[in-house]
Design a protein around this nucleic acid. Sequence first.
DNA 1: CATGAATGAGCATTCATTCAT
DNA 2: GATGAATGAATGCTCATTCAT
Lengths: 189, 189, 189, 189
Amino acid sequence: MNVRSNKKHRVFETTLKLIAEHGLHNTPMSLVSKRSGISTGAIYHHFESKEVLINELYLFVKQEIMNNIFDDVTAELNYKESFHKIWSNYFHYLIKNQDILSFVEQCSISPIIKEQTRMEAQKLAIPLIDFITEGTQKNFLINNEIELILAIINGNVITVAKLHISKLLPINKEIENKAIQTSWKGLSQ
Amino acid sequence: MNVRSNKKHRVFETTLKLIAEHGLHNTPMSLVSKRSGISTGAIYHHFESKEVLINELYLFVKQEIMNNIFDDVTAELNYKESFHKIWSNYFHYLIKNQDILSFVEQCSISPIIKEQTRMEAQKLAIPLIDFITEGTQKNFLINNEIELILAIINGNVITVAKLHISKLLPINKEIENKAIQTSWKGLSQ
Amino acid sequence: MNVRSNKKHRVFETTLKLIAEHGLHNTPMSLVSKRSGISTGAIYHHFESKEVLINELYLFVKQEIMNNIFDDVTAELNYKESFHKIWSNYFHYLIKNQDILSFVEQCSISPIIKEQTRMEAQKLAIPLIDFITEGTQKNFLINNEIELILAIINGNVITVAKLHISKLLPINKEIENKAIQTSWKGLSQ
Amino acid sequence: MNVRSNKKHRVFETTLKLIAEHGLHNTPMSLVSKRSGISTGAIYHHFESKEVLINELYLFVKQEIMNNIFDDVTAELNYKESFHKIWSNYFHYLIKNQDILSFVEQCSISPIIKEQTRMEAQKLAIPLIDFITEGTQKNFLINNEIELILAIINGNVITVAKLHISKLLPINKEIENKAIQTSWKGLSQ
DNA sequence: CATGAATGAGCATTCATTCAT
DNA sequence: GATGAATGAATGCTCATTCAT
């Protein structure tokens, strides 16, 4: 990463942390500047506006998630095992990166994320869509619309991660496995 | 409803609409005042601060949801049929009240909602918890932690409602039934 | 004048003074607020934006000028005497209100004044246009386009007032009279 | 012109255009840099500050005007004809260089132009002052103060040029001649 | 000499909240 | 209780100027 993207990266990290801590509604640019050690002017050199920063950050974290969920999903695993691995990777990524979970959820339906951004974010999910498509074609998964299956898996992972974070039900390996079983049982043939 | 709660109600409705439209981060009290036709002074008479208003509204809509999801869930229905009915009621309530869905999701993990509020909201779900507890005790549902089952059902309904609203996949009766089947299949014994 | 317009009036006076002193480019709203003793919020309650404030002020001072230049122009005066009186009233108004002269001149060709405002300002000059029209119809003035005559008179008064203020040539009664003679001689038949 | 002054010249031209377009109050150095293709660093190498740039530009355009108004004013013309020619040259220069007219007028009374600059600008008018002095000495012009005559001529030309640009009264050759007659009639013996 | 990213004080404007009426 | 004008700290953003490369 060069100096330029390094700076963007620092702004991303700081913004993520602050929004998780103070909320989307309560994170001034001045605080992002102070905490990141980058002047407001420099931030605005990299991002046209706060809205653009948030939207770019949204795409960035969506990409980061995708970069992590296929870890150790090798050719040796069968479909069910791969499903299990991806679900688990995704889940552990979220609970290790609670700022990201918090940010993505605050944005999930907020008008701050523009239609264009949501469309681009959808494109980032293509590897996951391919995986699901494969599952339906080979009759591992029920023959539902791909978007529905994707949404349900995504929703399940996030739901369980939020449950863990809320401390209402700390998720240990056993409960995690139950949750994955529930997802798989609902969606498999 | 007396005059006082009538006014609170108007503030709630207006705030809900505005937050769905402009986002939690972008809904000034002055706009709530203008749109509701209630002076800022009067709003502050009913709500100590904006934060209090948001938190009270959060509890209000959570209650409203609960008030609607048991409609037509009568003694004549068996457990699976009741599950189906509740899921469907919840889903249709959300897509008929998209402002509520949008508001609840924007708040779902935001620090604007206080711990105390979340705990009270949890209490409102008792009828649903009872329904799930019954299901696990009578072995209609898998023997998972109640909180996990509740979270997964809740997550599924919201996920599918958001999918519908996003227009990525408009949900007709057929797809709705597939979604309910998926939930049931995952969670039932 | 009621309380409301009183406040607008105070903002006008302060802004006028500050723009004359610091220039159109260098007069922040915060200073207008501090000097007028009216909070920025209150200023923005009365004026949508700084641009709107400047444009309204422009119309206000144009009106003020018109309110003063027909003083003592009575039916007893003949046309030439009236011309002399108006010229003199206008001139003395400007040198007594140098802030107004400075402001009007800074705005005279600046894009800060909108087309709409210029059109409305033009309407305020109707009494003067009527006076010139009378002069051309009764052959006191040369048969030039009214707009040309108006512009030349206006330009002459402002030019001489600026000369006085610049201290390059302090204008006493004798020089003032010479200047008026020059205007009259150029424009009369 | 060497490389250095060439660059200054490009900055002048760009600044002029931008101030005419966006106003004295709304022309950032960054825009001057971008539009001129000269880095801000380089601009600050040639001009100590923005204020210095504006003041130098003011003198530059005043000089440019003077460089053009004596065109074709040859020994063969009599005084009145020379007066006519100068007036016309000045007028046509302004309407061909509306950016200059706009800039000079925005500066005309603004505190952005320093006393020192105004004094130097006055010196540039010496050829014109000589011409007027000659006119008064030879009794072609009325015996008024030179500064007054200069100011009135200058004011008349600018006034008529602004009238043309404002489109309130497009000035054709006929009207131009009327305007010149008015100036001459007012100022000649 | 030239560049243009970086700085940060300063700007226009907003908005939660108060309080005189 | 109700009103909404007023407050002024805080916000998003700009821009004159600097300085490392």
